[in-house]
Design a protein around this nucleic acid. Structure first.
Lengths: 219, 219
DNA sequence: ACGTTGAGATTGCCG
DNA sequence: CGGCAATGTCAACGT
C-alpha cells in the first residue's frame, strides 16, 4: 500500500463530472491498484476514487487513473508532504454474523416462530421474477409466502406483493397468504402491508439464535 | 489525520457482529474522530469502521471506539509498523455535475424534450405520499405526471404508479398519464411500465445540456 | 456477462 | 429526529 499526503486538485469524469479545488489530502493506492482520495472528514468514504480494474500512470505533477469504461480520475499534485510504501501481507478476511441470511436460516429451521402451525415447504422458492425467501403451508394446508428482511421497509413489502401476484397464478398454491418478517418494521411499511393484505411479524434475532440450541457458534 | 499501520485484530459489535483475525492493516483516524480499518484490497471500503459521532479510547495494546447507539469497535494492536499524524487543513468540498437534480432542472425547462406539446405545471408536485418530479399538461390539456431517474429501474416505475394512483383521485387532474424518463431504462422496467400503462422515454443528458444554451457552466 | 438483492449501506433533504 | 430518495451506491451470488 502506498500512502501519499499532498496538496492537490482532483477531477473525475465518468458517470458524472466532479472537481476538487486545491487542498491537502491523503491519496491511498492499494495493492489491487485501486486509488482513493481522502479528506480529513466525511468518514469513511473517500472524496474521489477509482475502483479496480483500473490503470494508474504517474508523472511528477500529475497522476491519471483510467478504467476500461473510459472513466478518468486526474490528480494534479502541487506539493508532496509524505510518500510511503508499506507491505501489508495477506488479508485473512472478514467474518460476519447476524445478516439476513442467518435470519433466514433460523426461520427456515423454526417457521413456527413466525406463526403457529407453519411448516416449511422450501427456502428460496423460485418464481419467474426471483425467489421467495420461504414458502410454507399453514395448519389448514394453505400456502404462505414469507419475505424476510433485517429491517422492514416499503420496498420489501412491494417485493413480497410482486411475488404473491406470481404465486397466485399457480393453481396448486392459490390462494397464497403473505407474511412480511423483519427485526423491525417501519410504520409506513406496516400500512402498505395492511393495504396489500400482507401480515407483518417482528422477530428477535438474538432470541431466535438462543432458542436454536443446535448452533451456538459465535466465532 | 492519524495514520497507523499495525498488525492487529478487530471486533465490531453493533448492527451485526464481525471479527478480523490478526494481520497487518492501515488504521485511519480522521480529524472528525471517525476511525476506519483498511486492508490492502477491497477498494475503497474499509474492512471495519466507526462513523462520527463516536468516542475513541486508546491504551497501548487496545483501541476501543464506541458510539451513542452502543456499538463498539475494538482494535487489538500486536505490533506497530508506522504511526504518523498530519494536519490536513480546510477541505473546500466536492463539486458535482450530472446528478438527477440537474436532469430534472433541464427537463423542467424543456418538457417538450420528453413529449411534443408538454407544458410544465409544477416541479415537485405534492401528493400525500410524496412529490411527483414534474406535473405537466399535454397539447389536449390532459394531465401528465413525469418521474425522472438517472437510471430507470423497476422501483422507479412502481413509485410513479403509486403517484398516478393518488393523482387520479383528484377530479381536476383525472385521468393522469404517466411518463417514466431516464438516461437509460432497463428492459424489466420497460416491461412493467408497459403493463402499468406508463410510457418510457430515454433522454441524453449531454444533448439536453447542449440544447439548453442558457447555462453552459461546467465549473 | 448480466441481473437481482443485500448492506453495519452512506448521505443529504425535508418535514 | 424520522422518513424518504439518491448514490460514480458497492459487492455477492445466481443464472
Amino acid at each position: 500500500m502506498r500512502l501519499v499526503i499532498a496538496r492537490c486538485t482532483v477531477d473525475y469524469a465518468g458517470r458524472l463530472a466532479a472537481h476538487l479545488p486545491a487542498a491537502t489530502r491523503l491519496i491511498m493506492v492499494k495493492a489491487d491498484g485501486s486509488v482513493s482520495v481522502h479528506s480529513d472528514g466525511k468518514a469513511y468514504k473517500p472524496l474521489n476514487w477509482m475502483n479496480v480494474p483500473c490503470d494508474l500512470r504517474t508523472s511528477p505533477g500529475e497522476w491519471v487513473v483510467t478504467n476500461p469504461k473510459g472513466e478518468t480520475l486526474t490528480i494534479t499534485i502541487e506539493e508532496v508532504h509524505l510518500d510511503i510504501e508499506h507491505e501489508m501481507g495477506q488479508e485473512p478476511g472478514l467474518q460476519k454474523d447476524g445478516v439476513e441470511a442467518h435470519l433466514q436460516e433460523l426461520l427456515a429451521a423454526r417457521p413456527e416462530a413466525v406463526a403457529d402451525g407453519l411448516k416449511l415447504v422450501r427456502r428460496e422458492y423460485p418464481t419467474d421474477i426471483g425467489p421467495v425467501d420461504l414458502l410454507c403451508r399453514d395448519a389448514n394446508g394453505g400456502a404462505v409466502a414469507i419475505e424476510i428482511k433485517r429491517r422492514g421497509e416499503i420496498d420489501g413489502v412491494e417485493q413480497l406483493a410482486r411475488y404473491l401476484e406470481r404465486l397466485d397464478l399457480d393453481g396448486r398454491l392459490r390462494p397464497v397468504r403473505g407474511i412480511f418478517v423483519a427485526q423491525q418494521i417501519k410504520p409506513q411499511a406496516q400500512v402498505l402491508a395492511m393495504a396489500r393484505g400482507i401480515k407483518c411479524v417482528e422477530v428477535d434475532y438474538d432470541q431466535l439464535r438462543g432458542e436454536d440450541t443446535g448452533r451456538l457458534t459465535l466465532f
